[in-house]
Design a protein around this nucleic acid. Structure first.
Lengths: 144, 144
DNA sequence: CATATCAGACTACACCTGTCAACCGTTTTT
DNA sequence: AAAAACGGTTGACAGGTGTAGTCTGATATG
């Protein structure tokens, strides 16, 4: 994990570039992820209020809590803020990228880097429903 | 994640029971996992010294560090200690169980609970090698 | 037996995370 | 214009994590 204590502007820019190039050097925490999901879901940038509104149902967070999460995501280079009247936030890393990064990380951590091992484990831990399996079978039949 | 603010003894016992029944309510951290892996690899219980020896190559941790990790794992109910001359430790949760629990958790977190979505993502992020794919195809052909 | 060694307990400390309150300036409402 | 509401910044605090030092009692060794 990379620690960026006192980020100067320069370092900040580097982080952004970095985030774009190899998608994120730091983990996104559970709560932060909730915020990311909201941003990913929206096609335009959102303000804190927007985010809060979107989360109303699932999480009853105070506005400050969301603000904190958002700030942390900015420091991590996961999202970008853009000043209009108010700050608007949008992701710097796509859900797709993040998911596959995180999945890869898990595979590294637990399955010795072998995706196949993971899938095999899923199959024989009976975590897959019958319909999962048939869809997967379909998928692998078509894929070449 | 379950937070137990002021844990009373009772709650603590519940946690332990819980850990045994449905294998672990708390996450195992990265460093802790290294220790778990060593224990999983061995068929007999190990002392801290044994663990340290096994980790010699990969991690140059001080003995106290390992002891700390081991203690934390004991509190979490992930391993058990057994007094001989010295304490010997062995897993309470199997690697298999842990892996599939953690994988499930990731699927919940990122793929809306659908294992199929995760696998699909892996496939189209090109994280799978050609040989992974053929092995998987094999696997799904045989599975019924 | 005396000393050197070591295992285990306790403590520590910085950083991360979850959650929020207080304060402060700007914008909107009365 | 005064008051209310809102957005942003700072600070906070408890619990988790990475990593390790110190102390104390047991064990091994001369």
């Amino acid at each position: 994990m990379v620690y960026l204590a006192k980020t100067t502007r320069v370092i900040h820019i580097c982080m952004e570039v970095n985030a774009m190039i190899n998608s994120l050097a730091e983990r996104i925490s559970d709560s932060e992820l909730e915020v990311m999901k909201v941003l990913w879901q929206s096609d335009s940038a959102l303000s804190v209020t927007d985010i809060r509104e979107a989360l109303q149902k699932s999480r009853s967070w105070e506005a400050t809590t969301i603000k904190t999460l958002v700030s942390r995501l900015v420091s991590k280079g996961a999202i970008r803020q853009e000043k209009r009247n108010v700050f608007y936030y949008s992701p710097l890393i796509s859900e797709r990228e993040y998911n596959s990064w995180a999945t890869r990380e898990l595979i590294e951590r637990l399955y010795n880097g072998s995706a196949k091992n993971m899938i095999a484990a899923l199959v024989d831990s009976e975590s897959l429903t019958q319909s999962d399996i048939s869809e997967l079978r379909e998928m692998f039949r078509v894929e070449e």
